[in-house]
Nucleic acid binder design. Sequence first.
DNA 1: TATGAATGAGGATTCATTCAT
DNA 2: CATGAATGAATCCTCATTCAT
Lengths: 193, 193, 193, 193
Amino acid sequence: MTLTERQREIIENAVEIIARQGIQELTIKNLSSSMHISEPALYRHFENKHAILVAILEYFAGWSVGALTEIADSEAPPEEQLREVFRRHISHFAESPATSGVLFAEEIFKNEPALARTVLQIMATAERTVRGILQKGINSGVFRSDVPLDNLVMSTLGPLRLLVTQWRLRGYDFDLRRRGEALADSVVTMVSA
Amino acid sequence: MTLTERQREIIENAVEIIARQGIQELTIKNLSSSMHISEPALYRHFENKHAILVAILEYFAGWSVGALTEIADSEAPPEEQLREVFRRHISHFAESPATSGVLFAEEIFKNEPALARTVLQIMATAERTVRGILQKGINSGVFRSDVPLDNLVMSTLGPLRLLVTQWRLRGYDFDLRRRGEALADSVVTMVSA
Amino acid sequence: MTLTERQREIIENAVEIIARQGIQELTIKNLSSSMHISEPALYRHFENKHAILVAILEYFAGWSVGALTEIADSEAPPEEQLREVFRRHISHFAESPATSGVLFAEEIFKNEPALARTVLQIMATAERTVRGILQKGINSGVFRSDVPLDNLVMSTLGPLRLLVTQWRLRGYDFDLRRRGEALADSVVTMVSA
Amino acid sequence: MTLTERQREIIENAVEIIARQGIQELTIKNLSSSMHISEPALYRHFENKHAILVAILEYFAGWSVGALTEIADSEAPPEEQLREVFRRHISHFAESPATSGVLFAEEIFKNEPALARTVLQIMATAERTVRGILQKGINSGVFRSDVPLDNLVMSTLGPLRLLVTQWRLRGYDFDLRRRGEALADSVVTMVSA
DNA sequence: TATGAATGAGGATTCATTCAT
DNA sequence: CATGAATGAATCCTCATTCAT
């Protein structure tokens, strides 16, 4: 499912629209006009609107799985891996703020069960990876064991999501990297034994 | 801004639709037919669709502020207050699952700046209250002081939000109260000195 | 077809709306709310909207026929009678500017043949009266006889209508009486032998 | 602001509808069905209904300004120019009776201030041109000087408007050209010294 | 590869009117 | 005499999509 150059441009524009104006504004008309092409032209590149949404999600799924796998497979100690989970996500969002509007906005895909499932899978992958990291840390005694692993996972990903959500809702008006770094420190501190 | 009986019914139906099918499906047609009335009939009770969304948000804002104020004003110790924040929210969602789809789904109101602002205010109120509780705990030495207060707040509300989000996305397929209680315990543990 | 007090109020309000906002804005809702009553309440006084329009026209027809007959039956010399035609119309409009918007706005009643006919009758009555006055003047040698009577009529009523139309379109921003008086003088001058 | 072929067809149909049934019947549905296309198809050619009305007015404004300028710039003597003003307008209306319903029906555009202003401008242009012609005639001693110029203008345009209005209201049931020619003669006679 | 023109379905909203109270 | 609640029909307009070119 590799994308053509044009397809990439399209989903970038689509993401931008979703981020800036919400999904309700992601219409074929808006999308095509943002690309300075005609509406039918879009259909040369994607079968229909659904296919565009699918591509958006797959794009993120690919990035997410890739990034998380890389982290989990690294030699770094668990605390560092945890920090890296924060760092990678936050870097990604800081570089293309638009994406944050899509990745954490599950509502968007509610109407389309197939997409909703993909979203859940992306979330599940992230959870699984973080759980793995935490488990390693617990085993090695770096992370606390007085809290159920599941809740430790929530306590890691929850704050990360909330930070990004607020950043987005507030119009990207604070320094995400700085706040993200600090939050990662705090989370690691709280998670540590 | 007290609602008539009929207005309450309408926003209940609207919330239900948003929760079950997403906002894209909150159309005047769907809403009116879910109430077994004609479309124009809705306009006797709300000036327009926007007014319905406003009413939904105000309804939640009212609930939220009320609940949080009550907690903060209680005599309970900080740990207990924190647990109560979890309990109240989770009770509310468990009783009317539909509402969770609205309260944590900021995306919904993206198109309408006035509504987006209200959402931010609701979030801000929650944050302020939790910050107050945490501060009290820090002062009394119950909560840890080695983590910036802001991040402590994120580490409290982030997991709560994430839990509810997952519950919703998974079709309410787990026992929110039990998981919520456990999560509250964990969060309190992690936040404690 | 005598009107109740309430009916008179209603048609006055209706005329006001037509004058200020155009017929497109003459809706039952606008009309009832301008009277601070409910919509169904209007139906106590008029069978339907059509009946309101009929009443408006009959109201004007009555005034117009009355005024013109009085003038034609007076003992005044033709020039004076002609000036009186101007004066009476202009006084009427100056006193209730709203009415000008209805009386000369034949378009308004286009959709309803019955009403269109009434409008034509009102116009025809005015023409007939003016023709009579002019004929008298021609017979007595005061008015010129080198122009067909029909055209003399047009040259009398045409300018009057145009003056009122412009006054209305320009938002009643000039002194209708003064301009009307001057115009009457000019018309009499031009019509005189 | 040149129109495409299709746009011209649309405004011709729109004018026809206004003329025959009144503006109240100029709906997107009526207009599109009169063109044997679907409603949305119209929106390919005009952004919205307002734009259609604007185009109608601009079309007339263009014609009107053009015709009047041509007349005023001609070498013909003032009496002849005055007659030409009548002739050109009347020819135009006789050829496409529909247009008369729009050009002299200011009420139509009442709701839309922008359009109302355009109507006033068209009227003002006509007035200015006729005033110029009359002034020339007065200067050269052909036209009378015992009547204020303003009123002379009213006495020229007023009858012309009234004639056309009556023709339209009576369902185009008399020979406009013949009556127009005769009226022009009469007006010139009355305006002459 | 691109587009101009078109469309069926549906969007929110307003209309005049009715009816039970 | 008045109203709150309701409605069928119609309003303008937008949607994703198609098709001939």
